[in-house]
Design a protein around this nucleic acid. Sequence first.
DNA 1: TGAGTCATTGAGAAAAATTATCATAAAGGC
DNA 2: GCCTTTATGATAATTTTTCTCAATGACTCA
Lengths: 151, 151
Amino acid sequence: MTQDDDKRLNDLRVDDLRRAFRRLGLRLTSQRVTVWRLFSDSTTGLTLPEACRALQEYAIGQATVYRVVNSLCELGFLLNIHGTNGEHRYLAGHPGHVHHLICRSCGHVREVTDCDLSTLEKLLAAQTGFAVEGHYLEFYGRCPRCGPSPG
Amino acid sequence: MTQDDDKRLNDLRVDDLRRAFRRLGLRLTSQRVTVWRLFSDSTTGLTLPEACRALQEYAIGQATVYRVVNSLCELGFLLNIHGTNGEHRYLAGHPGHVHHLICRSCGHVREVTDCDLSTLEKLLAAQTGFAVEGHYLEFYGRCPRCGPSPG
DNA sequence: TGAGTCATTGAGAAAAATTATCATAAAGGC
DNA sequence: GCCTTTATGATAATTTTTCTCAATGACTCA
């Protein structure tokens, strides 16, 4: 698992993207592939305006960027994380239940797959009467490259 | 703890607010109190535009609303939560380390104080080399009043 | 493979949200 | 109650997000 982060998600075959889009009755366009590539190359995630600026180079309009990011989110290819300043960043990830470990210094993000909060969820359900359906969990700190907090 | 949610945070004395502001060299103004009251009366949190609209009634300008909400966040009186549609909502809460249980149906939020993820954090630190400094955790589900998910 | 259908795109406008500016108002110290 | 200094409101400016619609191009079916 240690090296999984480095081989990013470009190896997700375009055919997988096509299948996923098709499942929603959507077509696979070159723009959608390009947007996906941009995000899957990023280890920190991008905000929507950042993505728009980066994709100008490929002559992809901003309306399209917004639309594609939304679709990729719905399909589970992109996830929302909190940037260091609270801004929304979109991060490419493996579909499924994952969490993130976010470096507050450089923004590098690493996936966390092994979390088990089910007992805590049951406890909360019993205490509060809420029907707990899921959770959103992010860890933050400093990545190995940035080293421990200064001072 | 069951009834703690209902007696909201209005009982936080204005003097406490003043002391907190003073600590940052800020003055306590009627606008700041009014903004605080609005948020402390809400069990679902408000977005900034929502707050601006609500505070028009009191002739508080939107620039002020943005500034005061920022201050209240820095002081720990307001916290950021994810609304049902991913939007930022600001919620009055007791300062300190708390998490939230958010109803996906009505938006009602309840504080969760008992979480212990320290062992999980240590495990992650060992596995990844990150210096884990904290976490952000939200639970979502359906509150007792809304009942379990339909269908 | 080629034509037709229909979702998708880009440009631009429009709307919404956020930030900046600055003269005026008022909080807190004396 | 004055005085200093911060905070406010109105307005403008900027940024972000959404909308519209003609033109393009992906996919289906023959």
